[in-house]
Design a protein around this nucleic acid. Structure first.
Lengths: 192, 192, 192, 192
DNA sequence: GATGAATGAGTGTTCATTCAT
DNA sequence: GATGAATGAACACTCATTCAT
């Protein structure tokens, strides 16, 4: 993949930040342009349409997640440790860059998420398949499809992050410890 | 709660169905009206605004979930069976009425989900608190906050249903058995 | 003229009061109906349309003015006294029932004021013609058309009332004495 | 004050013309746009809303009146001549551009005429205060507040213009000479 | 490439009027 | 006669997109 042009990246990041606060439909192209410091028309030099921009944002955001999680994995460690690293890295990313999580949630359930995009190659998905397959092969994880382990884990991280982001007050006031979900999820996927 | 007027319910169901396919912003009031077989202006006899309609839809959808799940619970059974019933009932509801799950996911992350609505009384949440507390008290579930068990379970059901709905082809072609998530989730919440 | 039906009068008065505060276009038929204590549809038993209602209101309001001013005129007094009585009566009416003045102002410059309505018989105009003609015949008023004297006087009263109603604060704070306009207007119409 | 952008002025003049014939509420933004030869959305490049447009129109119209009347005043002439020039200039302006008078009348009694706008600085009002004060100081006008002289005069001009505009046929057929109102008004304000 | 004024289809909402009860 | 739910045309305003500069 060729590196993203400077101004294009500027627009993507600007859009990402705004979408978190206003949602897809609360972000006119003009707002994204202004926030990125370019004219409205300029966006169309880099993207065909708003749909296109959001589609590219999906791959952009996914690559950030992929790089963050896979880049921090150390295959020389024991698998349980690697799993908790995985969990913590992803959790941390969502905490540091809530706009990424927010974008993903919105995108996955939006009409922008076309069948075409779903079927596109995904290094992130491939990496996960390999990761969980390794755990299976080592006899540490349940002997199930790596896909289902991935679904279990990613569902839990997302659920946790969503609660952390949207119900922070309630979490605090009731003293809920969201980190316990990592342990629980480990028990869900490990060989019993 | 007084029963919902016939036409009001018609509009709510019509809206629910359309939102699944087009999203909040892809559903003009005119489309919802047409689909419900009423004139555009008629919606405003029953709802103050689109925001109001969607807000009411939230309580409507939540009550459907609540009734479906709590109504099928049999407290005389052993807790593990009750859990799998819970899971299956919710899973079934999401399968039969995907528009309910879809609406919920969209609503939760949308600007319609105001703090006011979040803080409103929720029989569904209360029922879940009691349900999981019972499992804890019986020494069957982990001794954690019932809230966190709820988050774990609901996250898994949602994740499963989302995959089932959006990636049905891939699930079939790879022979993924999503029911395994129920077992995994049970292992996540049961006392180890 | 036959007496106005009880409910019809109720609607007219209700409309008059609302129009003062909200203007023609700020008064939906439903608001007028509610304010009159009848159902929206009931208005159409008495009036063909909103235009019709407003048209009738014009004649209704004009008859109130006519009755008030002509009914208090005492032809046995000297003409100057009669003029000041005229002025004071009209001024008083506008003060007591600002909705009448307000309606008139709005009506005169609105598209409701059709040529047809303008050409309708007007006891109020006839009475004024006679009144000012009398002053001319007695050699007290300028020897001009009674119409022009009427225009002069009615313009001054309206101007005064408008200022009194819309700029009451400024009038008070600057100590403006609006009654002086009566004297001035008298000097404008009397034989020099 | 910076000069008004070409297209903005086009829209203002177009609106002014239409409001005379249709009233504020009879003029959709789309009609104003079409009449100005621009797209509906273009209006919003120059004005925030219809309210804003009408508010600006008020200042625009007032400045036209101010420029026309004050620009033709020659302080070296004797005061009576200056008064008749004032009257004639204003009368002439209202004759040439009836839309200005019409707009003013509608605006003054409409909800657009907010307290805020009423309290705004007004070169037109200030100029009038000075003008009439001069007449008082010279011992030519009645020794009253310049405000009340202003009210008297402006009321007469408006009354005359309104009659001239709305009842032109009747005025002609009855041979009414509206210019006589200038003389009458002079007698109303001059020192007796 | 960059700009931002202009476009106009599309949206939520209002309200005069109708008509079944 | 009285009701008020239902209607649907009309409106103010938004915003993705274009294009002359």
């Amino acid at each position: 993949m060729e590196p993203i042009a400077e101004k294009k990246k500027l627009i993507l990041e600007s859009a990402l930040a705004l979408i978190k606060d206003h949602g897809f439909h609360g972000c006119p192209m003009s707002m994204m342009a202004k926030n990125a410091g370019v004219a409205a028309g300029t966006i169309y030099t880099y993207f065909d349409s708003k749909d296109d921009l959001i589609g590219e944002l999906f791959f952009y955001a996914k690559s950030i997640i992929f790089n963050h999680v896979s880049g921090s994995d150390d295959p020389s460690l024991d698998f349980k440790t690697r799993f908790f690293n995985y969990w913590n890295n992803l959790s941390e990313l969502y905490l540091d860059r809530p706009e990424i999580q927010s974008f993903f949630e919105q995108f996955m359930i939006s009409p922008f998420n076309t069948r075409e995009i779903q079927n596109a190659d995904s290094p992130w998905h491939d990496w996960n398949s390999n990761f969980f397959q390794e755990g299976i092969d080592k006899g540490i994880l349940r002997n199930l499809s790596p896909d289902i382990l991935f679904i279990m884990v990613i569902g839990s991280v997302n659920s946790m992050s969503k609660v952390r982001q949207n119900f922070s007050e309630k979490v605090a006031e009731r003293g809920i410890d969201l980190n316990q979900l990592a342990e629980m999820t480990w028990d869900a996927i490990r060989k019993q």
